[in-house]
Amino acid sequence: MLEVHDAWKSFGSTQVLRGVDLQVGGGEVVCLLGRSGSGKTTLLRCINHLEAVDAGVITVDGRLVGYRLDGERLIPLKECEVALRRREIGMVFQQFHLFPHLSVLENVAYAPVATRRMTRAVAEQTAHELLQKVGLVEMAGLYPAQLSGGQQQRVAIARALAMRPKLMLFDEPTSALDPDLVRGVLDAIRALARERTTMLVVTHELTFAREVADRVAFMASGRIVETAAPREFFERPRTAAANEFLERRL
């Protein structure tokens, strides 16, 4: 479903991604771990082309997202073409980024209508079902500022799901939340995992990663240095970097 091959990205003189390779199969849940500053968020943003890679090939469902390939050269696509590809990829941000001027229901139903995927009636029906799923259907008429952080994040998940993406990206979805609100968000992601939604989840919740992930990818200084089944990764990390990371955390 997702293939990242030799992705490179720098911001000015800072080299953030140094040849990332990663595959996520259809229906697979991969948790991306690593210390802050190891390039996890940048990798996620490159996958749906919110950032453009300097080099490397990223395909979702077999198609390049932000470029077309001409021999060895990547030719940037037009903004409207990128927008079409992005509809296949859902993204959940650390800070939720809900639209503050739209109600909870409108936040979820807006994009499918605006992109003409659904009629308003169908989109609102779908939004209701998704809000039901994340346990917030009774909040449909409220506005983001009236919700707790955990509730906002669950709305953000519903908003991304409303586009029926083939791949979901989560960028530290619980890092901005108070500890007692984390559970609700993780439960929502767990439910998606049970439905075999293809997901790439950047997280610091190691227990959650261990429980939900089919595979764990560990990132250090701009590369994925280790990929393994969670049990294997947590019990017998192969690299020194992963070992050190786990020792600090557990």
Binding site: N48, R87, H97, F99, A114, T115, A160
Partner: peptide
């Protein structure tokens, strides 16, 4: 600025982003 990221991540066309998301705010 992150509102633009959120709207782009949903695959909204530029015109919708400006008219429906940025303008009302």
């Amino acid at each position: 600025r992150v509102q633009i990221d959120a709207a782009r991540a949903l695959g909204l066309p530029r015109r919708k982003l400006v008219v429906d998301i940025i303008f009302p705010q």
